[in-house]
């Protein structure tokens, strides 16, 4: 039987890379519930590709900023598609700007989408995993959670919160066969990091031991590993995928 994986923020960047790798995986067959606020062209193309075969990709439109809708969303997912094997909390906002002039509404939105939404999704999708006595929760963090970065203080706070959440939740649910981990990518060239350009970008690349940035595919591979049976004994930890930048 195929394993059902829920991926948030699936339309672009790392989320899309994760969805693609899940669908292409040959050893384990995954069905994917891709949650996104809007459908990107690439996601639509994938939907077309996988709707002609055995319909392994389902796309649900949802705005995770609407925290009050999350329980109903989870209930619908379980009712319509069955108990999920895994949840990948990837959706995030990445406003940058110095704190002193960041608007309070942006701080509020960022913490809602990056922290509260993954906590609520975990709460409600964890329940069917507990009943299955098996499951995976993977939270996408960032190296910024530990290193810090000028202009990303709120984003950094949100990612550090997600890591702290993951460590405690791992202790809570380990007995039920559910693992909880984080993947912390370094700078990747995605829509979210568009503002990192020119000399700043070159400097990040130069300082990396591998002389390059990690790609969304590199980070997605770490997620796929954590989903596998081989990662059964890994819980409450962070896998950094940054081409060595923080070494």
């Amino acid at each position: 039987m195929n394993k059902l994986v829920v991926v948030t923020g699936a339309s672009r960047g790392l989320g899309l890379a994760i969805v693609k790798q899940l669908l292409k995986h040959t050893v384990i067959k995954y069905d994917v519930l891709a949650i996104s606020r809007s459908k990107s062209d690439e996601l639509l193309q994938l939907e077309e590709e996988y709707s002609t075969s055995d319909k392994r990709l389902h796309i649900l439109n949802a705005d995770l900023l609407k925290l009050n809708n999350i329980q109903a969303l989870c209930t619908k997912m379980v009712k319509d598609y069955g108990r999920p094997y895994a949840l990948i909390n990837n959706a995030a906002l990445g406003f940058d700007g110095v704190l002193a002039t960041m608007h309070n509404s942006q701080i509020d939105e960022l913490l809602s989408v990056n922290v509260q939404a993954p906590i609520l999704l975990s709460k409600y999708l964890l329940r069917p995993m507990l009943l299955n006595r098996k499951g995976r929760i993977i939270n996408i963090s960032s190296i910024i959670a530990k290193t810090g970065f000028n202009g990303l203080s709120v984003y950094a706070a949100s990612k550090a919160a997600l890591e702290g959440f993951s460590f405690s939740l791992a202790r809570e649910v380990g007995k039920a066969g559910v693992t909880v981990n984080c993947v912390a990518p370094g700078y990747m060239q995605t829509d979210m990091t568009q503002s990192l350009q020119g000399e700043k970008l070159e400097s990040v690349k130069r300082r990396s031991p591998l002389g390059r940035l990690a790609t969304p595919d590199d980070a997605a591979s770490a997620v796929l590993y954590l989903l596998s049976e081989e990662a059964n004994a890994i819980t409450g930890t962070v896998i950094t995928v940054d081409a060595g930048s923080t070494a």
């Binding site: 209930t75 964890l126 329940r127 507990l130 009943l131 809570e172 649910v173 007995k175």
Partner: peptide, 11 residues
């Protein structure tokens, strides 16, 4: 954890 499972099953 058992109570969490009870609530989940009843849900």
């Amino acid at each position: 954890l058992g109570f969490a499972m009870l609530v989940a099953q009843l849900e």
